[in-house]
């Protein structure tokens, strides 16, 4: 066990520099709800922790271009308490609300949920369907990356050494649109998604779906953005036929594994069930928000 150091820089630049020059394993400490558990259970032995919570810009939710910019160190509870954000992106908040207990959400961040690299992360599918874009700051440059491009495989992301997510941009909610996320777990709370489905859809004045994004969690090594599922909805009034097609497409899109949390067969079937339910919820919200 090598000695573990802790740094809490005041700027993003300093944080990126610390991460870039560290020779051993360096971890970003935001909420800590994954990193601390992994250290406690001997899964990782980092040599440096870079606490980004002292960087003021990362702690804010700000209005931007009719949408929202959410700092990477903003906690789940802070998002849940942001009335305008909750109103605009209820589906994103569906996911955030499911990240552990109240206690966990007091610390946990959406950036951490994403960077932990779990295909079962609850906030990731609705962030993707919302079209969230991450701003990633590195030692040399800053880049803007859609959230769906960040996870590469379980535990792995496309962030390079020294790169830090600074914030997420959630765009302006289009008119007549709604999003929703649901997951399946055996318990009501304190559980990991066996399957998760997020849908964001937009209707025209006649109630016809003009755009849809559908994302499936926990049914493949990374979250799945399913074009087939979206296609099942677009051009329909999200009626029974469309929902049947959506459910079939969701099940067909699954590439799950058998593990302690669920079986291939079960995950495949429930993905369809949830897709249908989530679509109905998103539809209701689209009608209401209109």
């Amino acid at each position: 066990m090598s000695e573990l150091r802790y740094e809490a820089p005041a700027s993003l630049k300093a944080a990126a520099a610390l991460l870039a020059k560290e020779k051993g394993l360096a971890k970003i400490l935001a909420g800590g709800t994954d990193v601390i558990v992994q250290m406690e259970t001997d899964l990782i032995e980092p040599e440096l922790l870079v606490d980004i919570k002292k960087i003021a810009v990362l702690r804010k939710i700000t209005a931007e271009k009719g949408g929202f910019r959410i700092g990477a160190a903003v906690s789940g509870m802070e998002m849940m308490e942001h009335a305008a954000l909750c109103k605009s992106w209820p589906g994103v908040l569906d996911g955030v609300k499911l990240i552990g207990s109240i206690q966990v959400k007091a610390r946990a961040t959406v950036a951490g949920n994403l960077c932990n690299g779990s295909p079962a992360a609850d906030s990731v599918p609705p962030m993707i369907t919302a079209g969230a874009v991450a701003r990633i700051v590195g030692p040399k440059k800053t880049r803007e990356v859609p959230v769906e491009e960040i996870p590469l495989s379980p535990g792995k992301t496309n962030l390079a050494k020294g790169e830090i997510i600074e914030s997420f941009f959630l765009p302006k909610r289009p008119k007549n649109s709604g999003d929703a996320y649901e997951r399946f777990t055996p318990r009501t709370e304190m559980d990991i998604a066996v399957v998760g489905v997020a849908i964001n859809l937009t209707l025209d004045a006649d109630g016809v779906c003009t755009a849809a994004r559908v994302c499936l969690g926990a049914v493949a090594p990374t979250v799945i953005v399913s074009k087939e599922c979206a296609a099942a909805l677009v051009g329909t009034k999200v009626d029974q036929a469309a929902l049947d097609k959506l459910a079939a497409a969701a099940s067909a899109a699954c590439r799950p594994i058998d593990d302690k949390r669920g079986t291939i067969e079960f995950r495949t079937k429930v993905a369809g069930v949830l897709a249908r339910r989530v679509a109905v919820k998103a539809l209701e919200r689209a009608r209401r928000i209109a």
Partner: peptide
């Protein structure tokens, strides 16, 4: 409670 928020003290490092 940590600065007024309910938290698990096992998930917070003392250095924070």
């Amino acid at each position: 409670t940590l600065d007024g928020r309910l938290a698990c003290s096992c998930l917070v490092l003392a250095v924070e």
